[in-house]
Lab assay of single mutants.
Amino acid sequence: MDEEYDVIVLGTGLTECILSGIMSVNGKKVLHMDRNPYYGGESSSITPLEELYKRFQLLEGPPESMGRGRDWNVDLIPKFLMANGQLVKMLLYTEVTRYLDFKVVEGSFVYKGGKIYKVPSTETEALASNLMGMFEKRRFRKFLVFVANFDENDPKTFEGVDPQTTSMRDVYRKFDLGQDVIDFTGHALALYRTDDYLDQPCLETVNRIKLYSESLARYGKSPYLYPLYGLGELPQGFARLSAIYGGTYMLNKPVDDIIMENGKVVGVKSEGEVARCKQLICDPSYIPDRVRKAGQVIRIICILSHPIKNTNDANSCQIIIPQNQVNRKSDIYVCMISYAHNVAAQGKYIAIASTTVETTDPEKEVEPALELLEPIDQKFVAISDLYEPIDDGCESQVFCSCSYDATTHFETTCNDIKDIYKRMAGTAFDFENMKRKQNDVFGEAEQ
């Protein structure tokens, strides 16, 4: 370990593993360490099931009705991949897709007046949907046509809207959309967690709705994908990429100290040895004095023996409960997957309800979601602090990732990755940087 590296990475969460992969592909010498004996950090999948019970201090362990412990891979952080989103792009560019198998999530649902409705995925579904009345549908269709044709580089498509100054509230007004449709559009399509976006320039919202539609167009059922064997497969896929390009991995490796000289990182000390480096990437748990708390998320993992009611017996789905429907500031989400994804025993389902904490009784906040899941065989409640770095790391060369937020997709995580890359490399992130180099010394032969 007593060696000189360009970059040392602490923690094998998804953000850290993707950055480690990119740095290795770009010719950097990388050492990647984790104090845990497993990959994934906060974003790991726990197996066998006995391990999950232990982690949540349920000492009696799983009953026999849960089947074989080894058949379970339970995500600690519930997220899906947008089919046309940035993480899929990263997987394709790096060819990490060859280590993973994905399934399309069967449906996306939205909560309205105590019931759940399928988010329409085709024009026919939209016309048949009970989510809105006849005239509302016509106006909504006009709005969707506007979004589909919108091109930020072609003012002819703006229809009198200025993407940089017109607020989204004004765009909704222009198409005369009612409150329910606005809730549905902002939260189930643009996937905002709160209503803060309404008074911001509309460009980002329009682009988010386009991303949803384009992702949906790829597979038809929903815009989301999920990897077989759980999300823990993602960091491992990128760790393989890093290793192929010469990255060194050490799990179960305690970090005793991060060594600084004149305010700059110069190395990491572990078990009496020092590895030197020019730059350091880590998750917040490794540098508690360089991060601040930015809120909390509650996630309740529920094991069920039945599909969720009114989802047409889907073996995977997402449910969004827009905040307006339950008098909150932030949406509540449910991600459900099952034995069909090799993450649970035969006939079992895993539904994870999550939201940003707003009160001193977080469990009560998630109740509307839990009511949709009854009866629940077993619950595991996790309340996590969200951390963000206190500075950009440019001076110390210590670059810290943000905690995983309450969103049900990876777009915010990818933004964090691109942002850290830019601060480390001094140049904007470009997907081309992730391409495997042809015929290089570490390149794998085609399968």
Rank of each mutant, 00 (worst) to 15 (best):
S316G: 01
M134T: 07
N73Y: 10
R173L: 10
N130L: 13
G230C: 02
L231F: 01
R173T: 08
S316I: 03
A428D: 00
D154C: 14
L373C: 00
G246R: 06
Y387L: 15
S316D: 14
V105F: 02
M33G: 02
D289K: 09
K293N: 07
P288S: 09
N26T: 06
E4L: 04
F442L: 09
K79Q: 04
R218L: 09
I390L: 10
D392H: 14
N73S: 12
I301N: 13
I301M: 08
Y421A: 05
E159K: 13
D101V: 06
V74S: 02
N262P: 11
D176E: 10
L280T: 00
G247C: 07
E446D: 07
T166A: 10
V291G: 07
E444D: 10
Q236K: 00
P307A: 04
D180V: 00
D6C: 13
S330E: 15
E125G: 10
L251T: 15
E388K: 06
Y172W: 14
V343A: 09
R141L: 10
L10E: 01
L228V: 11
G85N: 00
V297Y: 05
T157A: 05
G232D: 06
R276G: 13
L91H: 00
G267S: 05
C394W: 06
S384M: 10
S401V: 07
Q438R: 09
Y421P: 02
F143H: 04
I244T: 08
A425I: 11
E365S: 02
Q164H: 07
K118T: 03
N433P: 11
L373S: 02
T311K: 10
S215Y: 00
K54T: 13
E388Y: 06
N310T: 06
K293I: 12
I281N: 14
A382T: 10
H32M: 03
A344S: 04
L81R: 03
T427E: 15
Y111H: 08
L81I: 00
V206T: 06
L203Q: 02
F135D: 13
Y197L: 15
Q325H: 07
K253G: 15
L58K: 08
T427I: 09
Y172E: 11
A344E: 00
Y421L: 06
V266R: 03
Y172L: 01
R208P: 03
T356A: 10
V104D: 14
V255K: 15
E233D: 09
I259L: 08
Q346D: 04
Y111N: 06
M168A: 14
C400W: 01
E261V: 07
A353D: 00
C402Y: 08
P223T: 00
A190K: 15
N324T: 07
A353G: 10
E16H: 03
N84S: 11
D313C: 11
C317S: 07
E136L: 09
D385H: 03
S44Y: 00
E273N: 12
K264R: 12
V265E: 02
R173A: 03
Q164R: 12
M132K: 03
D289V: 06
A243V: 03
R299S: 00
Y339R: 15
T15P: 00
Q378Y: 14
H32E: 14
V7G: 03
N342E: 04
N439T: 11
D256C: 12
S129L: 11
G186I: 12
L131I: 05
D257V: 05
L211S: 06
P322N: 13
P284Q: 15
Q179N: 11
L76A: 15
L370F: 09
Y117L: 01
R70N: 04
I376F: 00
E16I: 05
S330G: 05
G232T: 15
A369L: 03
K29N: 08
K115D: 08
T122M: 12
Q86K: 00
N36K: 05
D440H: 13
N252P: 15
N252E: 14
C317Q: 05
G61E: 11
Y333C: 11
K329L: 15
D151G: 05
V326C: 08
T413D: 04
Y5I: 12
L52I: 04
D154H: 05
P48H: 00
K418W: 01
I308L: 06
V119F: 12
V74F: 06
A345V: 08
K115E: 07
D257S: 15
A445L: 01
K293T: 01
L370R: 06
K210E: 05
V181D: 02
L10P: 02
E16L: 05
K329W: 13
V357Q: 15
V381N: 00
F146Y: 08
V119P: 01
A128D: 00
A351S: 04
Y111C: 11
F143S: 03
L373D: 03
K293S: 14
L304N: 10
G443R: 10
S403T: 10
S401N: 03
L127S: 05
E136K: 11
H409I: 10
Q318R: 07
Y172D: 01
E214C: 01
L251I: 14
K348G: 12
L234A: 15
N26G: 02
E152Q: 14
K89E: 07
N153S: 12
N433Y: 05
S65R: 04
L59M: 05
E125W: 13
S24K: 13
T412N: 12
I383N: 10
R35W: 05
F380T: 05
S354V: 11
V7S: 13
R423L: 09
D71N: 07
I22L: 01
S24N: 05
T408K: 00
T194M: 15
I301S: 08
Y192H: 12
P37D: 04
F140V: 06
R299W: 00
A369D: 00
R208H: 05
N324H: 04
C317G: 08
N439K: 07
S338T: 08
D195V: 08
A126C: 13
I420V: 10
Q378K: 00
C277Y: 03
V255A: 06
N153H: 14
S44P: 09
G295S: 12
T360R: 03
E374L: 01
L241G: 06
K437T: 13
Q323H: 07
L10F: 11
C394G: 13
L144M: 10
G267F: 02
M434T: 09
F109T: 05
A314G: 07
Q57K: 01
E123K: 13
L91F: 09
M132R: 06
C414V: 15
C394N: 13
P63F: 11
G347L: 03
G113A: 12
D170G: 10
Y93L: 01
T15G: 03
D151Y: 03
R240D: 12
G178D: 10
A406T: 09
F431H: 05
Q86R: 08
S43T: 07
V96G: 08
V30A: 03
P375T: 00
Y197Q: 15
N439S: 10
K28W: 14
Y349D: 02
Q323N: 13
V268L: 06
A217V: 08
E271W: 01
I376M: 12
S270L: 05
S213E: 08
K329F: 12
I352V: 03
N26Q: 08
G160N: 07
V266S: 01
V326Y: 03
G67T: 12
N312I: 04
L241C: 01
I321T: 03
D405F: 00
D289C: 05
N84D: 10
G272L: 07
R423C: 11
N415A: 15
N312V: 12
E411G: 10
M33S: 14
D289Y: 05
D257I: 15
A445S: 11
K264Y: 14
D430F: 04
F146L: 04
N149S: 09
C17S: 04
C414R: 04
T194A: 09
V206C: 08
N262Y: 00
W72V: 05
H187D: 07
G113R: 12
E374V: 10
Y349S: 04
A126P: 08
H341S: 08
G186D: 04
I22F: 14
V110P: 15
T311M: 02
T94M: 15
A148I: 14
I300V: 12
D154V: 12
G263Y: 06
S330A: 10
E123R: 02
V366D: 01
S242G: 11
G27T: 14
G263F: 06
P389A: 08
T185D: 15
D313V: 10
A294S: 11
V266A: 08
I390V: 10
A190L: 12
